[in-house]
Design a protein around this nucleic acid. Sequence first.
DNA 1: GATGAATGAGTTTTCATTCAT
DNA 2: GATGAATGAAAACTCATTCAT
Lengths: 193, 193, 193, 193
Amino acid sequence: MAKKRQERFEMLRESSKARIEKAALELFAHNGYGHTSISKIAAAAGISKGLMYNYYDSKEALLQAILQKGLDFGDSLLEGLPEDPKALLVFVVEASFQEVINNLEFWKLLTSLTFQEDVLKTFAPQFEQKKKEFIQLGTFTFQQLGHPDPEMQAMLFGAAMDGVFLHYILSPNDYPLEEVKCLLIENFCKKYK
Amino acid sequence: MAKKRQERFEMLRESSKARIEKAALELFAHNGYGHTSISKIAAAAGISKGLMYNYYDSKEALLQAILQKGLDFGDSLLEGLPEDPKALLVFVVEASFQEVINNLEFWKLLTSLTFQEDVLKTFAPQFEQKKKEFIQLGTFTFQQLGHPDPEMQAMLFGAAMDGVFLHYILSPNDYPLEEVKCLLIENFCKKYK
Amino acid sequence: MAKKRQERFEMLRESSKARIEKAALELFAHNGYGHTSISKIAAAAGISKGLMYNYYDSKEALLQAILQKGLDFGDSLLEGLPEDPKALLVFVVEASFQEVINNLEFWKLLTSLTFQEDVLKTFAPQFEQKKKEFIQLGTFTFQQLGHPDPEMQAMLFGAAMDGVFLHYILSPNDYPLEEVKCLLIENFCKKYK
Amino acid sequence: MAKKRQERFEMLRESSKARIEKAALELFAHNGYGHTSISKIAAAAGISKGLMYNYYDSKEALLQAILQKGLDFGDSLLEGLPEDPKALLVFVVEASFQEVINNLEFWKLLTSLTFQEDVLKTFAPQFEQKKKEFIQLGTFTFQQLGHPDPEMQAMLFGAAMDGVFLHYILSPNDYPLEEVKCLLIENFCKKYK
DNA sequence: GATGAATGAGTTTTCATTCAT
DNA sequence: GATGAATGAAAACTCATTCAT
């Protein structure tokens, strides 16, 4: 039947796409987007150069596909937040750390791309929106906790997390992530008189 | 002192070498190392492509020369430190923020290179050393201030600063650097019971 | 007769082969042979790329098949000619103009291929033969009409027709084909003293 | 002196550019623009592929440069026209034939490009303008010569010339250009009662 | 017959680097 | 020192063709 064939092709396609995206993410994260050639991706994925272009219009389109997948995945962070402000902050910290641990390569890639603005322009609006939401949530929560300058504290809080992630991403094997996380919680997730 | 580097620039201001490095730093910081061609650097510096190779063996050697200058800072940071632990932390924060403000382009470049391991490999040992010294100083100081886990607190402190710098570097015009700095001092530079 | 080709198309109308040739002719004529990919032809014909290779050995073989059909015309042109020399010339003009109008795309393609010698090399002998026959017929006719240099006049006559067709093919919507045809007849299809 | 060096470089550049344009025109005219790769041009010109891009931004820019040069050259056709209408037509015929003979390859290239509209879009306005001028001149002249439909006659006249050129371009060695030219003059450059 | 995933040779283009002057 | 013409390796991308199903 025709369906069988279509299914088979669908499977082939998905398997190849997955292989390509896996190889590309790995190489992009490790060597940088600019330093990773299609040839290397194809070699790592065990396919020919040309096949990539059956699935993605360009090298950049491949990157976009990888980023989109990662962003879809991370959308769930702000769901199911606790009501209690202290608990909420702790939850955000825990969830964020878990996400970075789980998708280390993706976050490494994303962070490295931050400095090549042109490649990220497609996603810039989405990022700005998320950042704003994060700051707003933080501002509101630090206000509840009695902080005198909740918005700035939210920014500092975000910066501290990003700083930790930066260090962790750069040497994930050595970094005492768990301990730093605990101190981060102690330092920020508390009543401010 | 940061003045050292400035002096060096002063001395070379009129020389081709200085013009090359100035143009290169600007372009590298703005457009990225990989996206900046020798042609553009030469044009911006007002010299010929060939002359570059009289001074530097390669594009990477030019980069290394630029980076080398940045390493002077760390040395000067740890000079003339106050005795008092609280004052010391405040001093380090103030000096670091000032350095990043003064040499924004250099730090933007350095941060962007963080994710191109190969390019930085020459400096990796030096950076590791500086980082260790910074952590040791922090550890000692937080101990003096009575923190129960001074080493981890030093790491968190360093991460928070780097996070703030990261955000500032990415949008230097919008970022409320001064306010965040004050909060950073309030949050970290204090007695811990 | 031109009907021959049409019949052939009728018979194959529903078949994949006819759909392929129809789509290919359209695309070749509009976008050029070189700029038309097999993928686009297959998509336009509603078949798979692979199927094309069941019918034709290569892209060029497909082109050759399309061109072969056009050669039928010349054969039919010289059938049923009037005896009277003036009437004969008028008949040739009318029939040729009608053929170009009816099969505009085919003639557009053929003309554009004129400048890609390699592609036409298969047909070069056939074309040469037709041209020679046409010139001979013209020579004979202009002789009957009393022209002092009938062969050269035949060549000029053929060139004038081809020139008109060239202009018409390049902007079929604007060109005053009918008026120019009338003048062509007036200028050439007459007694030369 | 600096001037000497600049002159020397200027000469080098011009000589390379001339070699490139000569090779390109030859190959474009013979094999078609699309079938001629940069590699082949470079090989024919005895230079490296890369050098082309020192002088032209792209393959298309090289083509444009070649076309522009040819058009500048052909601009002089309509200068110094005789007053007498018959003599004017003869003059146009003679000058046009001479131009095509002198720059055969250029005209072959230009004609072949007529069917790849996209490449010519830069020049389309210029061509339209020239064509219009030519038709207007012809219309006016045939009117002077007493032709009842001078505009259409001008179009036929232009078509006849283009047709002759087309045939000549396609087999320049065999074509009896001189004789056909004489007949063209006899047929068109005369009083129409 | 029919499909479309997969291939790989070929194309345009970029750019760090060399070198004759 | 200084120049910029010239090189060539490598990059992104295209597409006719093959082949397992």
